[in-house]
């Protein structure tokens, strides 16, 4: 019974997520820098908003990592630091880049078996309740 419920739920979720796919937001140049062992990885991509309304990236889901947060690096005070941000605004008609030394996804405890050259899909969640699955290219520590 429980298994049946879970299947139904998954199907509903899948249907639901396809129904509210972010039509206005597209992603490109998505890649992940993998570090050795269970060290946290960083995810980078560009988000383009072709719509007429500001949309906020509010969360990222993926089974390949234990937790995913949006972070911002800063070196401006001379001390290299990171700051967690709750959400990231993508203004209408603009492109927002998550790139090295700026905004990035902090990906905790990667599952074993992720290798540079492979791919992993993460689902981005937006403030308008839409969701966008994005395939991230896996790269090594040096970003190659």
């Amino acid at each position: 019974m429980a298994g049946c419920c879970r299947v139904l739920l998954t199907v509903l979720l899948l249907v639901g997520s396809t129904l509210v796919t972010a039509a206005d937001i597209t992603a490109r140049q998505a890649w992940i820098r993998l570090l050795p062992g269970s060290l946290p990885a960083a995810g980078y991509l560009q988000l383009v908003n072709r719509g007429t309304q500001t949309v906020r990236l509010t969360g990222v889901q993926g089974t390949a990592f234990a937790a995913i947060e949006i972070h911002e690096s800063s070196e401006q005070s001379g001390v290299a630091r990171m700051r967690r941000v709750e959400s990231l605004a993508i203004p209408a008609g603009k492109t927002v880049a998550l790139k090295p030394l700026g905004y990035h996804l902090m990906l905790f405890n990667p599952v074993e078996g992720l290798k540079p050259g492979g791919r992993v899909t993460l689902t981005l969640e937006f403030s308008d309740a839409s969701r966008l699955p994005v395939a991230f290219q896996l790269r090594d520590a040096a970003g190659q």
Binding site: R33, P40, S73, A80, P100, L101, H104, M106, G143
Partner: peptide, 15 residues
């Protein structure tokens, strides 16, 4: 100087 649990700045600088 850095630390390994630093996914962005340290690897970017080292690279």
């Amino acid at each position: 100087f850095g630390y390994t649990h630093c996914p962005d700045i340290c690897p970017t600088t080292l690279a």
